[in-house]
Computed example of a mutant assay.
Amino acid sequence: MLDLSPSLVVVVAATFFAAGIVKGVTGMGLPTLAMGVLGALISPLAAASLLIAPSFVTNIWQLFAGPSFGVLALRLWPMMLAIVVGTVGGSSMLAGGSTLLTTGALGAALILYAAFTLLARQLRVPTDREPWLSPMVGAATGIVTGATGAFVMPAVPYLQALGLERDELVQALGLSFTVSTVALTAGLVWQGAFEVDNLFASVLAIAPALAGMWAGQVIRRRVSPSAFRRWFLICLLALGAKMLADAIF
């Protein structure tokens, strides 16, 4: 059971509020930022447990706010199925209690995601390659999710490369993140690593996450999303480098 001291409660609330702001501005980033910050303070397993409820609620909101749920579900179901299989299978790494391994893996995932998003050109995936590429990307995303609790790689750049319209892309990200959240919960339960007592703390994190999303939507109307996203990714890159260095040295 996670020992929620008053100081940790404040840190958790502040983290999910900040992560909600990022999601409100960019449409993503809540689990990545939350896992990055909390994973440096508590065990990655405990951080992943706290992530479950706020991630699920915010992603469901994002998923059903879009226009094309049925069409996207039919198009992306092989990827979603592979995410579930990969996440449940990879959850043994997160549940195994090897703090250095999971912290280092999370740091590497953050570095890879931030560097790719900052530096890489926009990719394009031809439609005829989706039938075999989607399950591969889904399985890889699932393994990373199961090992680190972060949902972004390589799902986010792949979905961005499908040429979806803006609202469709946001909804597709919501679909991927929702499936990943459910699969991570199932994996932790299957491994016997999910403590029901932590669910209460996770539910409490919903309020600051939703408040942050609302604030992020306000900010999005006043600040350039590209500038905000750039500095967010730079901070994420630095955080990932620190976590990876701590695990290695």
Results as ranks from 00 to 15, higher is better:
L76S: 11
A47N: 09
V144M: 05
A215W: 01
S43Y: 01
F116I: 03
I234Q: 05
V10S: 13
F116E: 07
D246T: 10
L51W: 05
T185D: 03
G36P: 08
Q62I: 09
L210K: 02
A247I: 10
F17Y: 10
Q62W: 09
A18Q: 01
I219C: 06
R220G: 03
A13G: 14
T103I: 00
D197F: 02
L164P: 08
G216C: 08
E130N: 01
T141A: 11
S91D: 07
A65F: 01
V203F: 14
V189I: 15
V223M: 13
A19I: 04
V223W: 14
F151W: 14
F228A: 08
G24H: 06
I206H: 02
L8V: 08
T15L: 10
A150V: 15
A238Y: 00
G240S: 08
D128I: 03
T141Q: 05
S226H: 13
R229V: 04
T26G: 03
Q171T: 10
R129L: 14
M153H: 05
T102Y: 03
L76C: 11
G187M: 04
T58H: 06
K23I: 03
A73K: 05
A186T: 14
L72K: 06
Q122M: 05
G20T: 05
A139H: 01
L76Q: 06
F151N: 12
I111V: 15
V137N: 09
P225H: 09
T141P: 09
Q191A: 15
R221N: 12
P31E: 07
K23G: 01
G39K: 03
I219E: 04
V88C: 03
P225G: 10
L164V: 06
V152H: 06
A209R: 00
L30D: 05
K242Q: 12
G187W: 04
G86N: 09
S98F: 03
P225F: 08
Q160F: 08
Q171P: 12
L8C: 08
A48W: 07
L175D: 04
T127F: 02
D246Y: 00
L123Q: 15
V22P: 04
I219F: 14
M35P: 07
W214F: 15
D246E: 15
L33G: 07
V37K: 06
P131V: 05
F56T: 07
G187R: 06
T178W: 05
L45F: 03
D128A: 13
R166I: 00
T32V: 14
L41Q: 11
K23A: 02
T26Q: 00
D128C: 02
